[in-house]
């Protein structure tokens, strides 16, 4: 099932949070919905799910707005940020209530808890859950109806590295089964290893949409006393280069290993070979012109934009 967003627009208090947004989400792939905090991701997802009414435009699943789906619970599962749980209700009861409303067998609650690794805490009150456990419970709720489409808003928030690895594997299996998944995040380093396609937005507008493999390559910084010779060799392969210092180049379009191999073949001495940044991150800064553009951090958890959390 496809998600289609067309000309979606929403203003809060005169400020356009989502502005003429158009994109599609294909099945059988993990699609990352990326943008800095405040870019309009959560508002877009809430419009897709019928919780926020668009000012104009449409968002459909399988050709229909959410409220007109014949059986939303079995079609699309969603785990949204700022989703609440009654603190006095147990995790299992939270899901059991949803089973009652949807008419699912109560066993689905236990199966979903098992899937997300929350079976042990199932009979404890949600008030005592950690952020990561709440994320898992929200995901379990999304999975209850065994839906075709999964929409996850910042699912890795509060998950430990083990949880994130698990999520990655889970979403991979999901997409490989031909189902649709749209997962939002402002954490690029995480998403890069998670998604096949990206939809990038900034200030409510589409910046880039397409397969991750087609993203413009990252840059590699190379130091060499024979910079000019290296430059000639590199450009012969079609890579683009830029001389930053007499003994330094930045190379676009070739990975480090290829550059090293080429230098070795031409007997060119190298002093340094450094990938400049995560591809997605570079791309993001290039496309949005946001941040300092230094791209210096490739470590875990480097976010984009320093704005406050959207959606309050």
């Amino acid at each position: 099932m496809k998600i289609q967003v067309r000309g979606l627009t929403k203003a809060f208090g005169g400020r356009r949070v989502v502005d003429g947004l158009t994109f599609e989400v294909e099945p059988a792939a993990v699609t990352g919905f990326l943008g800095p905090n405040g870019a309009g991701k959560t508002t877009t997802l809430r419009m897709l799910l019928g919780l926020v009414a668009p000012d104009s435009g449409s968002a459909t699943v399988d050709g229909r707005p959410y409220a007109e789906l014949p059986d939303p619970g079995r079609t699309i599962g969603a785990a949204l940020e700022a989703t609440g749980f009654h603190p006095a209700r147990t995790g299992r009861d939270h899901l059991a209530v949803l089973c009652t409303v949807h008419g699912f067998d109560r066993r689905r609650a236990d199966e979903a808890l098992e899937t997300v690794g929350l079976a042990e805490a199932a009979r404890r009150r949600v008030g005592g859950y950690s952020q990561g456990m709440r994320q898992r419970l929200a995901l379990a709720a999304a999975l209850l109806g065994d839906p075709e489409v999964l929409v996850l808003d910042e699912p890795s928030n509060g998950l430990d590295p083990e949880g994130i690895a698990w999520l990655r594997q889970f979403l991979r299996t999901w997409a490989d089964a031909g189902r649709t998944v749209l997962v939002s995040s402002h954490l690029l380093s995480e998403m890069e290893q998670l998604v096949d396609r990206v939809v990038i937005i900034d200030r409510g507008r589409l910046v880039h949409a397409g397969p991750l493999a087609h993203l413009p390559g990252g840059q590699v910084s190379v130091h060499s006393p024979q910079a000019e010779a290296l430059r000639t060799a590199l450009e012969a392969t079609g890579a683009r280069t830029h001389r930053t210092r007499p003994d330094a180049l930045t190379v676009t379009g070739l990975p480090c290993a290829e550059i090293g191999r080429l230098a070795h073949r031409h007997r060119i001495e190298l002093h340094e070979l450094t990938p400049e940044s995560g591809d997605l991150e570079t791309l993001f800064f290039t496309l949005t012109g946001g941040g300092s553009g230094s791209g210096s951090g490739t470590g875990n958890g480097i976010g984009i934009g320093a704005g406050s959390r959207e959606g309050k």
């Binding site: 799910l49 919780l51 949204l80 989703t83 749980f85 009654h86």
Partner: peptide, 18 residues
């Protein structure tokens, strides 16, 4: 009002859009 106070309205209206 608990649906709004505990923000369970999100889950409730996801389950029942009407």
């Amino acid at each position: 009002t608990g649906e709004f106070r505990h923000r369970t309205a999100t889950v409730t209206f996801l389950a029942t859009p009407h």
